[in-house]
Amino acid sequence: MSITTAAAKRGRILGSAAVTWLVFAAALLLWELIAIGADSVYFPRMTEIVATGADVLLSGPAWRLMLGDAVFDIVLPSLATALGAWALSALIGVALGTALGRSSWAMDYCGTLISFLRSVPPVTLMPAFMVMFGIGVQMEIAAIVFSTLWPIVLNTVDGVRSVDQVKTDTARSLGTPRRYWIGMIVLPAAMPKIFAGLRLSLSIAILLMVVAEIVGGSGIGLRLSTTQSTVQYPEMWFWVLLLGVLGYALNSALLAVERLVLGWQPTRGDDA
């Protein structure tokens, strides 16, 4: 690509990003206006929600960059649980998916079972998880791992299976030793699919984090249900919107990692 077209393209992307955020700001403004018009306790003004949020998050001392207790006691622990469990699930899922995908028969037997397990609503397993692990972080992790594992496994299997005959032949004709096979050929080839699975399961991880916290009574989930029952609607709205922000940020971060790792892919670019 020549320099001029690259610059033009970058300009176009910047331009569309500006429009995107303008529209976003307009939506917030619209919310404010509708809320003023509706004048309902359930539907507070955007400025009120933001002010409440600032109060909750930025009430701390200066040495902590103003970050309030809520950041350290609620947001960060919730995030740590979700991300930790998701990472654990990624490890198990990729290993399991690679093993299943490399075997010529394992998926014949396990495919149906995994589709079934994926269709199980993880929420309804909460009672079982509570009995097994007690109420606490272990239960939360178990619930998140159980629900994020299957998309990762299935995508990894798919990716591992996508290694074509020509690549296999090439790698063999170049004398690739068996023990390097998975690391050098199979996993790199499967990486795009694995990342698709990781992204999918990241959003599921946040979902299950909220569920487990509502059921188990901790973190953001607890704040959501408490603010509802104590009629603190601006704060309730704030937590809902914060989940949107967190989801957006985490997804963007993962996309950035993906772009770094999958930089070799031809069709990468402005489609994020």
Partner: peptide, 21 residues
């Protein structure tokens, strides 16, 4: 492209989080 940010922001809000609402 105009609706992108709005959608990308709404999409990750889990439905369960909307239950209290």
């Amino acid at each position: 492209s105009a609706s992108r940010a709005l959608i990308e922001f709404l999409r990750p809000i889990p439905a369960v989080a909307l239950i209290p609402l």
